[in-house]
Design a protein around this nucleic acid. Sequence first.
RNA 1: GCGUUCAUAGCUCAGUUGGAUAGAGCAACAGCCUUCUAAGCUGUGGGUCGCAGGUUCGAAUCCUGCUGGACGCACCA
Length: 658
Amino acid sequence: MDIFKESLVSFIKTAIKEKKNIDITNEESEKLIKNPPDVSFGDYSLAAYYMAGYGFKGKPEEIAEEIFNIFMPNLARIEDLFDKIEIKGAYVNFFVNKARFASFVVRDVSGSGGDYGKGSPEKPLRVIIDFSSPNIAKPFGVGHLRSTVIGMSLSNIYKFCGHNVIKINYLGDFGTQFGKLITAFCRYDDIDFDEFEVNPVKSLYNLYVRIHKEAEEDPSIDDVARDNFKELEEGLVRGNAGGLEDRLGSIDGGQTESVMGTALDMGVMDNKGKQLRITKELKSRFCDSGPDGKISLWKFFRNLSKKEFEGIYEKIDIKFDYYEGEAESAVFSNDIKEILLKSGIAEESEGAVIINIKGGKTPALIAKSDGTSLYFSRDIVTAIFRMAKYNFDKMIYVVGSEQSLHFNQLCGVFDIIKENLNKISEKDNTRFKRYASLISGRLVHVKFGRIIGMSTRKGNLVFLEDYIKEASLKAKEKLLLDNKITEADKDGTSLKVGIGAVIFNDLKTRRTTDVNFNWDNVLSFEGQTGPYLQYTVSRINSLVSKLGVVDSEGGAASDTADFLFSKNDDDFNDIFLITKQISGFRDAVGSAMELNEPSVLSSYALELASLFNRYYQNYRLIGNDSDYIKPRLLMLSAVRTVLTRILNLLCVPVLERM
RNA sequence: GCGUUCAUAGCUCAGUUGGAUAGAGCAACAGCCUUCUAAGCUGUGGGUCGCAGGUUCGAAUCCUGCUGGACGCACCA
């Protein structure tokens, strides 16, 4: 909060106490202060409607009059900070001393180093953000990009607000579909092993599509696939002797790393720890050796895919603290099933095990009739492990809204467990009870809408790589046309612009609305786009470096003066608008975090960039004397500081020049 | 059928949590580069906030109904 608003807050608080004998907190007082919709209504306002709750009575206009009369006699107490107070209908509007305000903001930014807007909560939260989470047998498409950039951006925002963030990529590395993949891989003789090395995910996907098609003709394939999956899962369970409680015990003892690393395999790695290339011999060894072979094959698929994903993440500069997988949780799913059945929380139905979540009509399914695990049961185990490992205050799942039901049920299960804790026997379940009961109320599903209508010209799924390539190509054309780069593009400018366009496009609208995809829109780079923001920062860079030269020749300006700007300056009003926007940065980050909504920052940044570009167009700095330039240099770098920060928070690359 | 969610300018979206005159960007049209990067700026036109009720001083925002779309609803994830 700035000193202007602060003084209003305390003034209102005192006035209400003095005049109405009502005690209110600073927070309540702050809530009464509104931001008028238009600058012509001033900078802050008090609405009579809200004041009615604090002892003010009568028609709104009368209340406004009364408030106005409270302020006027005491104007001296705040007049340094405010130019004018006026009544307009039911509102009392406050106009800040613009020259002072602008000077204050600019100093505030330059004084906080690069940390302007950073939060430092008294009790930082420990927040897990689970995002991206691609399925290892499905191409990394646009849907995963959304989860990835929203998650990464939220991680940045929480961190910037002073919280402790743990970023987890929960790979979709398990489930019935892997039974299918194993079946397919072993069934077909014409598999291109080289292609498998180069494009593992695509190869797996093709296998999946192929076997799926064949299964439509011959349903017995599905049975084989289910058996293969069962064999795989049971093999893993055998390989990890000891149940859930033991595992939680070892986590308590500090053994937090995945148990899968030590799981059985038969020669997936060479003696240097490098994964072997698949060959015909290796393939038949995997396929003919029962559970151990299945496990090896599964690991082989997983490793190759993970490597491919890491390449993509590196390209768009996304980093995770941990990679996890569903398989580890699958191993302990059966324990969960037993606990919940025994305590009566879950029940059997048609051979499967279900839980009725209150308020929901659809029961949650935690185990299949053949005893193997499900997505849902694995997520329960995973959450418990994470509580044991990280003791989180909040866990955010960044997953599409089509999975709302799943996450409602997941939250519901932990509520039920907490309510029925005494039904679960203490014996052998101490740790389970401790951790599971802590989870209730701490899970958040941050959902996002689908991307509609995105396809190649042939109507196929668009891969992220191609998406970025297309955008970069377009950026390159533009750069070449303007004679800004050589064909070689050594700095990778076009790639950064392309990535910026693609990522920003995903973050500029509110998460929950479905995005209508439109190539023209993504490839235009004008108006409300990532490149527009990148361009704005580049412009400032260029201008600042040129002004820096001018300034060093011109001598010192009034660094310590109370006012850096004068209301007689030609550009005064525009400078004020810019600084006003800058001063809203803290609130913007704050609500972006509160709402788990990066787009709050996108809109904010676009507005700031737009104000700056208008200023840039209308006023010339070079050629003026140093006293004129120096404060404006501070203003420029304040804009740059905030815009750069937001680009960083939103995972949009910042360019020195473009 | 049940549940969730959405509907704002030709198109894509904002709209400060119920407040003052509903705003941007694209697209269209008219302008601005011998001057700090034209991926920019200025101006014009464009709206029954899906429809109908209700709640109150006040509704794009909350409630109900209707219409239309998206998603989900037991052994997939």
